[in-house]
Computed example of a mutant assay.
Amino acid sequence: MENKRYPLPPFTMETALQKVQAAEDAWNTRDPEKICLAYTVDTEWRNRTDFVNGREEVKQFLKDKWERELDYKLKKELWGFKENRMAVRFEYEWHNAEGQWYRSYGNELWEFDENGLMKKRYASINDLEINENDRYL
């Protein structure tokens, strides 16, 4: 039996906003061990052109991500929700090992199980090279 991850669906405006804020806060820790617990053991992801299946693959994906995307800072915004699904807009800033900064923009579609764990995450993301002094996150 998996733990519950509150708030649970079906979402209201208040609980949908709480869920998005919790995801933003968790991802900004850059802690794959903690973050992966918000997903079902058999979670299904599409992230850019990567397909990730299961909590263990999520954990490894996030470890690899933050080895490349340094000083990562994320902001998420709820765009819509219905029952156990959400649409979220996000942007994040990071730099690579050579010091080039990026702002990455995208949209995510989320689907949750009855325990409030995310079972599906589909993300489309674009990157924009920026100067360090153009950062705002």
Rank of each mutant, 00 (worst) to 15 (best):
L128S: 03
L70F: 08
N96R: 05
W27G: 01
D64E: 12
R85E: 15
E132A: 13
E132Y: 08
K4A: 10
Y6H: 14
G116K: 00
V88D: 00
W110H: 10
V58H: 06
E33F: 08
E111T: 13
R30A: 12
A16W: 05
D25P: 00
W101A: 03
D50M: 12
E24D: 07
K119G: 03
K75W: 12
L70Q: 11
N107F: 12
K59R: 12
Y136H: 09
E108N: 00
W45L: 07
I125Y: 00
E129S: 00
P10V: 11
I125K: 03
E33Y: 07
N84S: 10
R5V: 14
Q60V: 05
T15W: 00
A23F: 15
R68W: 07
V41E: 14
R121A: 10
T15R: 03
N107R: 06
L17R: 14
T12Y: 07
R121L: 13
Y6E: 15
D71E: 14
E57S: 11
Y105T: 04
E69I: 02
E129M: 01
F90V: 02
L62W: 07
T49P: 00
N96T: 01
R30F: 07
W79M: 10
V20N: 02
L78C: 01
R5K: 12
V41F: 12
E33W: 05
W45I: 04
E129K: 10
K63V: 06
N126Q: 13
K76F: 15
E108A: 07
I130T: 05
K76L: 15
T40C: 13
F11H: 09
E56P: 02
K59T: 01
E67S: 10
M1T: 14
R48V: 08
L137C: 02
N84F: 02
A22L: 13
D113Y: 02
F11Q: 05
N53R: 15
D134G: 03
E129F: 01
I35M: 10
I130Q: 05
T12R: 08
K82M: 02
V52I: 15
P10G: 09
K120M: 14
L17W: 04
K82F: 06
R121N: 10
N131I: 05
L128M: 09
F81C: 01
Y6A: 13
V58Y: 09
L8F: 08
T49V: 07
D134Y: 05
T40L: 11
D113E: 07
T49F: 09
Y6I: 09
Q21H: 14
Q18N: 04
T40S: 14
N53M: 13
E114S: 10
K82T: 08
E129P: 06
T29K: 11
